[in-house]
Structures are given as structure tokens and as C-alpha cells.
Write a protein that binds this DNA or RNA. Structure first.
Lengths: 226, 226
DNA sequence: CGGCATCCGGGAAGATACTG
DNA sequence: CAGTATCTTCCCGGATGCCG
């Protein structure tokens, strides 16, 4: 498998000088952008990517990772011993795909077809918080919120009108969510009361949980007829 | 062809609540975004779309237009008599795809694979001016520039640190470019001297043409190795 | 078990030809 | 001009198997 073959993409390219067309050559294939999305909060191994992307097949994931690596978006690394396991990480340039994901998401959630009650991955949810965070609504709020989603741990720090999210456990969070990403999404975006979400455990100041759910307003839907 | 079938997309959807995944369901198919791009400066008819998108086949264009129409991104209209021809236009929501195109383009042109000397459409070029315009470099410049690309006419108005571009002929432009989009791109982005571009005709203040070419700086390339 | 490689069926994309 | 019809090619998705 020569490198030319990979960058060639079977010649199925747009061959257009327009930056948009080039972007589609780079990350426009099926699943490519979602693979990048899943790597946003740090490296992952092959099997984690596969489980976080329900529906992708192993061979397609292999192809996407090969392509993204050849293009300089993803980097293949081997963790130092004793882990000694191979993981995939974003390059600096690959990490700059975030504005694309955010712009796409902000536009698409206005579609009448958007249903926030579907499956969502932990990375998607965390990324959506970064995308939808409303500085005005946060005001001078300054809190640390922890998330435990499956085996993943995230920490969000809200302060100075910005939200910073990273992987890892929060040492002494003001608020802590534990449960599937879907339940957290239903609470924050769906307006579901915590009592209606048996799989979701919220620890910490209860009124802060309510406040938190108001910080990520969804943009208004467009008319179904366009 | 029932409408359900169209929105179904053969069930080849991501089924993910993430806005990014929904966006990919909506405009992630091959050619879809480029079709939207070509409609950005106003409605076009089928055959114009086909010629402006070299490489797309008629049946794929038909499918994309059907899909985009069903999703509320594109609208099919019939021009009033005596024209009485069918054209495709963007809906208001479809026009809001522009930030996506710009974000994609800004990111992708940093790739070492980007070659500004390839084929480019008139719409791409005009859109790239909107994307890459540097208000600082423009300063208090206030000029009207006309473009004649094939049978298309565009007018750009630079002033107050912004650039406004629309279809149509400029009445008394300070500068006028006439020629293929590729030549204009080579002059503005490639730094090619006007003398080296025999197909490009520049009318108006010569020093303004030089100044104009400096207003759209390309972001620095990333290292080839990522 | 993780990380693929391989094979196969279905379907989307591409090219060409044809029609109202 | 604005698409259909048809055919081929290739990609996607699923299953299986290999190999450290």
C-alpha cells in the first residue's frame, strides 16, 4: 500500500482550487469528520474509536485513519511502556478542525430534522457544550463541573464568560454528572427533569444543575418548508 | 419517488444527535456542498450548475438537488415569463451555509496539498474573496471592482473595512477584471504578474490592481509532516 | 483481545446515451 | 435545455480470519 495510493483516494477527488473542495477531499469522506470529532479531547485507541462510532466498520475505520494520517490530520503514536499501546491523536492542524465542527453543528441543529433524543457520544456532548455555551447567560458564574460518562471523565471550568473542557477527573467539582451522554443531553438540551432520567446521577448543588442546563441555548429552528 | 425515500437517503445516515453528524447527513454527501456553493450568488439553472461543476454527472446532480430541496436547503423555482425557465435557488437557511464554506476553506488552504493553480469556478473565487478579505490591509480603501468571468458578472464594493460582492455589472468601476477565474486567481493568490496572464484583461487604475491583490492573504501552510 | 487484512453483497458515484 | 436510462466501477458496510 503505497502512500500515493492513499493520497490519491482512488482518484475520486474534486480537483478544484477552491479551499472548500480541497477540504472535502481531505475530510469529506464518510465518517472522516466524525473520526476527527472523537479524537478532539485526546488520543484514543482503535477499538475505542470503533465503539464510540457505532455503525462504522473496522475496515472503513482503518481506511479513514490511514487517509487522515497521510494528510497530516491524524498521527499514530505508541504510548510509552508499560502501556505500549498504539493510539491515534490529532496533529496541531487536525485540532484546528474544531471551528468546522462547531460551524456545522450550529447550522444543522436549526434543521427541523434535528432530534436531540438520539444517540450521542461523550465527545460530541462535550464539544456541543463548547459550541453552544452562551457567555451572556453564564454572567460571572465560576464553577467546576465534572462528568462521568461510561469510563470517560471530563472536567468543565466555567469562568470569565468562557467554558474550558478537558479530559480528566475534577478534583473537587461544584457539580458532577454521572450517566450516559444521552441522559445528560436530555437534561441540558431536552429540558427533561432529572427525576425523569433514572440513569443520570447529579451530585452537588441542585440549583446549579438547573442553572447549568440554561447555559447552552439551541438556536431557533427554521421553518420546515425552508 | 416518495418524499420519504429522499429523506431516508437509503438509510445511510449516521443517526446521531450530534449537530455535526446531522450536518453530514444533510450536506455531507459527495458534491452536495459544492452545489450549494455554486448557488451562493443567486439562482442557476440545471445546465449552468452542471458546467460550473466539472466532473459531476447529470444523475448525481439531479439526486443532490432533489435531496437538498427535500431538506429545505434548495428551492426549485420557475422564473416569470418571458424567461419561464426552471432555476434552483438557496433558501434563507441554505444561504446560512456560507460560514461553513468559509471555515472549511480557511482551514483547508493551509494544507500542503493546496494548489491555487487548479481549476476554480467563478462562485468559488468570489466566495474566496469574502473569506480571505483582510480588513486591516484594506484600511480605508473605498473602491468598486467589476469582474467579467465568462458570461458571469460580479461587483465587489470595498469600503469601511468590509467587502460586499454581488452578481451584476458595476456601473462605473474603479477597476475591472475580465478573463477566466483561474487567471484572476493566479493574479490575486498566485502573485503572477498581469503580463504573464494573456487571457486576463485589467482595466482601470493599474496600481489599484496591485493593491487589490494584496488584500487576500493566504494563511501560512502547515508543515508537510503535520 | 487489539489491529488490522480479506472477501462479499448492495448501493452510490461516474460515464455515456437517450428522450421530451 | 433538463433531465432520465443504463451500465460499469468503486466505495461502504458486515462478516470472517489472521497474527502479535
Amino acid at each position: 500500500m503505497e502512500l500515493e495510493k492513499i493520497t490519491d483516494k482512488g482518484k475520486r477527488r474534486y480537483d478544484d482550487a477552491c479551499g472548500t473542495a480541497l477540504a472535502l477531499d481531505l475530510i469529506g469522506e464518510r465518517w472522516a469528520l466524525l473520526v476527527v470529532r472523537e479524537l478532539f479531547f485526546g488520543p484514543k485507541r482503535f477499538s475505542d474509536l470503533k465503539t464510540d462510532l457505532p455503525g462504522i466498520s473496522a475496515n472503513v475505520l482503518t481506511q479513514r485513519l490511514e487517509g487522515l494520517e497521510a494528510e497530516g490530520i491524524v498521527r499514530r503514536m505508541r504510548l510509552p511502556p508499560p502501556a505500549s499501546v498504539q493510539v491515534y491523536d490529532l496533529t496541531d492542524w487536525g485540532r484546528e478542525v474544531e471551528p468546522i465542527l462547531q460551524t456545522l453543528g450550529r447550522w444543522a441543529v436549526r434543521s427541523p430534522l434535528h432530534d436531540p433524543r438520539m444517540q450521542i457520544s461523550a465527545s460530541s456532548l462535550m464539544l456541543s457544550f463548547r459550541t453552544m455555551f452562551d457567555a451572556k447567560r453564564a454572567g460571572d458564574l465560576r464553577k467546576v463541573i465534572g462528568f462521568a460518562i461510561g469510563k470517560e471523565r471530563f472536567t468543565a471550568r466555567i469562568g470569565d464568560g468562557v467554558i474550558a473542557i478537558e479530559r480528566g477527573v475534577a478534583e473537587r467539582p461544584d457539580l458532577r454528572f454521572e450517566g450516559p451522554a444521552m441522559s445528560i443531553a436530555a437534561f441540558v438540551y431536552g429540558g427533561a427533569p432529572a427525576e425523569a432520567l433514572p440513569e443520570l446521577a447529579i451530585a452537588g448543588e441542585p440549583e446549579l444543575a438547573q442553572r447549568f442546563a440554561t447555559l447552552f441555548p439551541l438556536p431557533p429552528k427554521v421553518a420546515p418548508a425552508g
